[in-house]
């Protein structure tokens, strides 16, 4: 029972990010920790109010152990953060063995972020995560330039992106979010292809491939060429992606890029996002996703646009579902 006073001021802000999946993916607030910014979540245990987050997306997990990019890995640029971390980690087997039992004990859903160079590898990754208690959903990172061939994230090619999604879909019944690159073009076709291949929700977007040079002539500022830009500078770019994708598909969208306060999050919701992931801002303020949940509950509901571009809507059960 909620007190009458609470009911007047606090809105239910929970969202289902995978209404088509048997297990669904109900998040109690639409504010997620974006991949990479809270590690595997366990690092923030006890220090960050994780139970007040909507969900936690883990650091990108790969099939084999990786040591990551050579330093320097980060540089602050105007209104943004350039990073080339390089997906360091012990590989999916070790991650699941070490952390999944702890995730299981939490009330907050943990979304495992998966990274691979080849579309088929997403199938292998999803297969390993399938049925592991503690893993609530998967996010296929098709935006990261780290493993991309020739610096081309998989989501720049709708066919490859759909193959990766289909490979993961074939391996698991877990909810699947697919993360798009802000550099992707033909967004509506891409979004439809991903949904048709089995994506339950789309994360828009990952970081923008970018570069910073040493002005003193020392070459690139970061140790790896696979650098990408996050933070406030990314927001208008990702917002447009959200808006485009929303025109094409009715599946839930997680907006991601440069959110550092409620007004930024409201922009994403107004553009058609159902949830918002916090990345760079969580580095400076790890409790931000929890606080945004409180602020949105006090703010009240947000009008959200629907699908407008129905002409080329594929005939799938997803698309036929009334909202």
């Amino acid at each position: 029972m909620t007190l009458a006073g609470d009911a007047r001021t606090l809105t239910d802000i929970s969202v289902d990010l995978a209404p088509q999946r048997p297990g669904r993916l109900l998040v109690r607030t639409p504010f997620l920790a974006a991949a990479g910014c809270l590690g595997y979540g366990v690092e923030g245990e006890g220090q960050v109010p994780l139970d007040r987050f909507g969900a936690i997306v883990t650091r990108g997990v790969t099939l084999a152990p990786r040591s990551g990019s050579p330093p320097p890995r980060m540089a602050e640029v105007p209104s943004g953060l350039l990073h080339a971390i390089g997906l360091p980690g012990p590989g999916i087997e070790a991650v699941l063995e070490r952390y999944a039992p702890r995730w299981l004990a939490w009330s907050v859903p943990v979304i495992l972020s998966l990274c691979a160079a080849e579309a088929v590898d997403f199938g292998s990754l999803a297969q390993r995560a399938d049925g592991v208690p503690g893993v609530a959903a998967l996010e296929l990172d098709l935006a990261s330039p780290d493993l991309a061939r020739g610096g081309r994230p998989l989501s720049l090619d709708p066919t490859l992106a759909a193959d990766a999604t289909a490979a993961a879909r074939a391996a698991t019944e877990l909810p699947i979010l697919v993360k798009l690159s802000p550099a992707a073009t033909d967004l509506r076709a891409l979004a439809r292809a991903l949904v048709e291949a089995g994506a339950d929700a789309l994360t828009c977007t990952g970081a923008m491939p970018a570069l910073a040079m040493d002005p003193r002539g020392g070459g690139p500022l970061l140790g790896s060429a696979a650098a990408a830009l996050s933070g406030p500078a990314l927001r208008p770019i990702s917002l447009r992606v959200v808006s485009e994708v929303r025109r094409a598909v009715s599946e839930p969208i997680v907006g991601c890029g440069g959110v550092s306060g409620l007004p930024d999050a409201l922009e994403y919701l107004a553009a058609g996002a159902d949830a918002v992931a916090i990345g760079t801002a969580a580095l400076a303020d790890p409790a931000l996703p929890a606080r945004l949940g409180d602020e949105l509950a006090a703010h009240g509901p947000v009008a959200r646009p629907g699908v407008t571009d129905r002409r080329r809507q594929p005939r799938t059960p997803h698309a036929a579902r009334p909202r």
Binding site: E43, Q47, S67, G68, P71, R73, M74, P88, A282, L283
Partner: peptide, 22 residues
């Protein structure tokens, strides 16, 4: 003296090469 990301050991943005790994 180096800019660090989260300062909590999570983001792995501030690593330098150590004698036995980053």
């Amino acid at each position: 003296e180096q800019r660090v990301g989260c300062a909590l050991g999570v983001c792995l943005g501030c690593v330098v090469p150590g004698a036995s790994g980053p």
